[in-house]
Every structure is written in structure tokens, then in C-alpha cells.
């Protein structure tokens, strides 16, 4: 059986899209930058259309839990359209169905790249994404039952995604052993995107081509992505926020979050922050 699904997984606002822009440009044969609104790189695991097209079911008459049961089958079938890497972006935590069965098509999975970012910066960026204040965003990052696209009000092109808490999300992906996972820190991409993207290519056994690499690096540069969004808009942006590609810096939270809120996030995610070097061994903030 062909194992070709590659997960690009992360909590929201952690560098997933950045990497997808890089990969799309790296794999594109054109000299022009890939349009950020047509990132022709795989799919999103919550895509209603892919699930409906590959199962034939009408999702609008199913509950969110029933929809989850269709996802594994739908993406296995969808991945058959690809010879090599079938990239799937997801913000879902790596969870199973209530029955204990897999929600993810693990038997067709090759590997996952998991993007992690300082939760203090995530809180700032996520607040912008949700069109809310950092306190509310931080609250959601502590909530085990937090879901994306859970609105009951109208039709949504995305189905509900269970995220767990920020730590829960990180653990769900990094401690599972169904397939290999490469953990990539957002801060490391900021510091040296060349090194990090190279290691992703190597991890996925994608042949290195220096010409493509230089091109992709240039087009996935933060300023370029921001400029592209100003020119054409970005369809993956949530309607609640003004711009998707914002600030992007590391440690930006210091200008925004209150001392109280910083402490609250640290308390909640202490172990995980320490493990991924956002806190020193003695518990001091590193960034």
C-alpha cells in the first residue's frame, strides 16, 4: 500500500502556511511566485468538499462527530490522486474517533511535519486571527474542548476541528508513534529559514535542487508574503482579522501581553514550553 500522505500539522499561527508557501514554490516549475490564493499544494484536512467528493455523502445532514468518521476514508481516496507526497495541512489535534478508531488515515501516512511556536506569541497572533483580545485567545489555548469551525450558524467550507489545549495539541502529535514526525520550531525558521526548510526536505526525502531552493526561499520571505496579501488578499485569512501575515516576529508578545497573562500561559503550558525550549530548565523565559 502506498504511504504518501504528509501532514503539515500545527496549532494555528505557528508557521504552517509559511512552510506551505515555501513548499509550493519549491515544487512549482514556474519562475513566478505561486499565487498565495492558489497554493497548489495538497489539501486541508477539514475541507468539506474533499470529504463530500470522496465519499459521496452530504455532510450537512450529519453531526460533527459523524463527519469525522468519513475523513480517514476520504483522504485515503484523495491521496490516490498523487504519485508522491500528498500534503495535507491540518490544525486538528491528533485525536481518535470516540469509538477509538483512527480519525487520521494512518495506514496511508508517510510522515508529519509539526510546527511549534512560542505559545505567548501564538496568543497574540491567534487573537488577531480570531478578531478578539489576547486574554480570550489565551483562554481558548487552555481549553481542552476548543474547536475551530464549530459555528452552528451557517454553512462552512471547513468542518469542525478539535484542537485540545495548546499543550494537548503539541503532545497529541509529538508523542504518537504511528508515523515519523519532524518537529520544527517557528523561531528556528525565523532565525535560519534556509537550514530549517532544508531539514524538512531531507526528512521527507524530497530531492534537493539549489535553483528551486533559492527561488522558494525568496518567494516565501515574510515581507514578500505580506506584500502579496496586500495586493491580492488571502483567502485563508479568517474574516475576523484584517491581515493574515502580520508582524511574524519572535518575542512580540512582550509589547502586548500583560504580566498576568504571560504568567497564566506559562503556568498552564509549563512542561511543554520547557520541553521545546521556550523556558529554561529553571523555568525562565528564553525568548
Amino acid at each position: 500500500m502506498k504511504k504518501n500522505i504528509v501532514w503539515l500539522a500545527s496549532y494555528p499561527k505557528s508557521g504552517n502556511t509559511w512552510c506551505r508557501v515555501f513548499l509550493a514554490n519549491y515544487l512549482s516549475k514556474s519562475d513566478e511566485p505561486v499565487n498565495i490564493n492558489h497554493l497548489n499544494i495538497g489539501a486541508i484536512f477539514s475541507s468539506r468538499q474533499i470529504i463530500e467528493d470522496n465519499t459521496g455523502f452530504d455532510i450537512s445532514e450529519l453531526t460533527a462527530d459523524e463527519c469525522d468518521e468519513l475523513r480517514s476514508f476520504a483522504f485515503e481516496k484523495w491521496a490516490e490522486n498523487y504519485d508522491e507526497n500528498a500534503f495535507v495541512k491540518t490544525h486538528d489535534a491528533f485525536v481518535t474517533l470516540p469509538s477509538g478508531e483512527n480519525m487520521f488515515p494512518v495506514r496511508k501516512t508517510k510522515a508529519a511535519v509539526y510546527f511549534i511556536r512560542n505559545p505567548l506569541d501564538v496568543a497574540v497572533s491567534f487573537a488577531n486571527h480570531l478578531g478578539t483580545d489576547p486574554e480570550k485567545a489565551a483562554e481558548k489555548m487552555c481549553e481542552n474542548k476548543f474547536c475551530l469551525a464549530a459555528s452552528k450558524k451557517k454553512y462552512n467550507q471547513q468542518i469542525r476541528q478539535r484542537l485540545l489545549s495548546w499543550s494537548g495539541h503539541v503532545q497529541s502529535w509529538t508523542t504518537q508513534n504511528n508515523f515519523p514526525v519532524l518537529v520544527v520550531r517557528y523561531e528556528n525558521i525565523l532565525e535560519n529559514s534556509e537550514r530549517e526548510f532544508q531539514s524538512i526536505l531531507q526528512f521527507l526525502n524530497i530531492p534537493y535542487n539549489s535553483e528551486n531552493f533559492i527561488k522558494a526561499l525568496k518567494y516565501s520571505n515574510f515581507e514578500n508574503m505580506k506584500k502579496a496579501e496586500q495586493e491580492t488578499g488571502f483567502k485563508e485569512k479568517s474574516p475576523a482579522c484584517k491581515t493574515f501575515f502580520k508582524v511574524g516576529k519572535s518575542g512580540y508578545y512582550k509589547n502586548i501581553l500583560s504580566e498576568n497573562l504571560i504568567q497564566k500561559i506559562i503556568n498552564e503550558h509549563f512542561a511543554c514550553m520547557k520541553k521545546y525550549h521556550y523556558l529554561s530548565n529553571s523555568g525562565e523565559l528564553i525568548i
Partner: peptide
């Protein structure tokens, strides 16, 4: 609702 837990 059309069904329980289906918000249509």
C-alpha cells in the same frame, strides 16, 4: 432541527 445535533 433536521436532526439532533445537526444545526440546520
Amino acid at each position: 432541527f433536521i436532526r439532533k445535533d445537526v444545526f440546520k
